[in-house]
Design a protein around this nucleic acid. Sequence first.
DNA 1: CAGTCGCAAATTTGATCATATTCTAGGGTC
DNA 2: GACCCTAGAATATGATCAAATTTGCGACTG
Lengths: 231, 231
Amino acid sequence: MDGNAQKVIGKETGSARPPAHELIYRKLREQILFGEIAPGQPVTIQGLTERLEAGMTPVREAIRRLIAEGALDFQGNRRVIVPLLTAENIAEIIYARQWLESDLGARATQRATPADLADLTRLDAALDQAISRGDLQAYLEYNYRFHARIYQMADAPILASMAEGLWLRFGPSLRVVCGRLGTQNLPDLHKDLLAAMRAGDAEAAARACQQDMLQGMEQVRGVLTPNAVSD
Amino acid sequence: MDGNAQKVIGKETGSARPPAHELIYRKLREQILFGEIAPGQPVTIQGLTERLEAGMTPVREAIRRLIAEGALDFQGNRRVIVPLLTAENIAEIIYARQWLESDLGARATQRATPADLADLTRLDAALDQAISRGDLQAYLEYNYRFHARIYQMADAPILASMAEGLWLRFGPSLRVVCGRLGTQNLPDLHKDLLAAMRAGDAEAAARACQQDMLQGMEQVRGVLTPNAVSD
DNA sequence: CAGTCGCAAATTTGATCATATTCTAGGGTC
DNA sequence: GACCCTAGAATATGATCAAATTTGCGACTG
C-alpha cells in the first residue's frame, strides 16, 4: 500500500487520465448544480451525447449516478428530468441541513489549517466580487465551492457526501430563485463564519453555518412556495 | 404541454416490466445489504455478469449506482470493493442516524394508518421468530424491512433516501457483527416503538427509534473498533 | 361544415449486446 | 532487484431492438 517509492512511468503522455464517464459526470453535475439545466427540463441520453460530444455508455453511467444522488429524477417510464422541489422537499432539506451544516462547520473549525482559512478567505472575496458585479453564475459557483471546501476540511466523508447530495437537489432551484430576486439582497454570513473559524470557536461556526443555510433556504422556500404563483 | 391528465394503458400483460439494470441493481443491493458479499470483498463486472447471468451494460449501471449511494467503493484504479467501515465512519453514521431516525419515526407515527401498524406488527413478529430460531439471514432482512416500512410511512422521500443510503453503508458490517455475536443478545426496542406508534406519541416513537438505532450501532462499533482486534 | 376525438404509423429515445481498445497487475527473465 | 511481456479485466463505441410519445389522417358529432 505504501510502497510508492518510485513508480515506473514508461510514457509521460499524462500520468493522470480521468475516465470519460467521470468527466461527463463532472460536467453534467456542474450544469445541474449551477442551473444551466432548469428544473423540470428533460434530460435525454442522445441529447447529451451530441451536446457533450461523448459516447453513449459514459453518458448513461453519469446519468445513472446523478439519479442515485438525487440530482436527476427518473420519471417512471424512462424519462429523466431535473426535479422540481415541492414545499415538503424544501422542509426536508432544511431539516437535514440544520444537522449536517452545523456539524460539518464545527468539525471544519476544529481541523482548520492556515492554508484552509486562506482558501476560504479567497473564495469569499471572489464571491463578494461576483455579487458586486451582479454575476449570478460566478456567485453560485463560488458559493458552492466555499461550502464544499468546508465539507472537505471537516474530514467526514459520509456526512460530506450527504451534504453535497443535498446541494445537488436544491442547486437548480437556487438558480431560479437568484435569477428572480437578483444578487442584491443575498445574505452573506460568511464573514461571521470566517471570524468564528479563525477564533477556533466551533460552536459559533456551527451557528453561523446554520444561519447562512437557513437564510438561503428560506429565500428558496419563499419563491418556490405556491403562495402567489403566476404561471 | 400539460395534457397528461390520464394515461391510457392498453395492455396489462406485465403491468410494468422493470428494466434489466433495475433488476440487477435490486439483486446486487440486497446481496450487499444482507451481507452475502462481505466487506473488503472485490466486486468485478465480469464476475457479476456470470454470477447473475446478465449482460455487461446493466451490471455496469447497477455498480455505478451503488457506488454513488456509498454501497460500493471505487478504489481509484478500476477496482470496486464493498467498503470497510472505520471507527470514524461509524461515528458519522451514528450522528446522522440520530436525527434521521428520530424525525422519520415521529413523522411515521403522525401518519400511521391501521394498515401500516398491522404491517409493522407482522414484520416484528416475523423478526422475533427469526431471532428465536437463530436465522441470521431472516433477521437481517426483516429488521431492514421493518425500518424501511417506517421510512415509507414517514412520507419524506429525501430523508428516507438518506436513511436508506446509510443502511447500505453499515449493512455489510452489521452482518459481520451479528455473525460474530449471534442473535441472542440482539436488542429489540421495536415493542416500545410500536406501543408509542399505536398511542400516537410521536415524541416517544422518536426516542424509541433513536435508542434502537444506538444499541445496534454501538454493537457494530464494539466489534469493528480496533480495541481488541484478534485477526 | 367545422371541430374534435381516436386510432395508427412514424419518429424519437432508451435498453441491450457484441466487440475493439486501453490500462493495470503479475510473473518471468536478464 | 528491476524491467518487460503477457494476460485479464475495465472502458468505450456503435449497432440493433424495443417501447413510448407524438403526429397525422380519417371519421364522427354538434
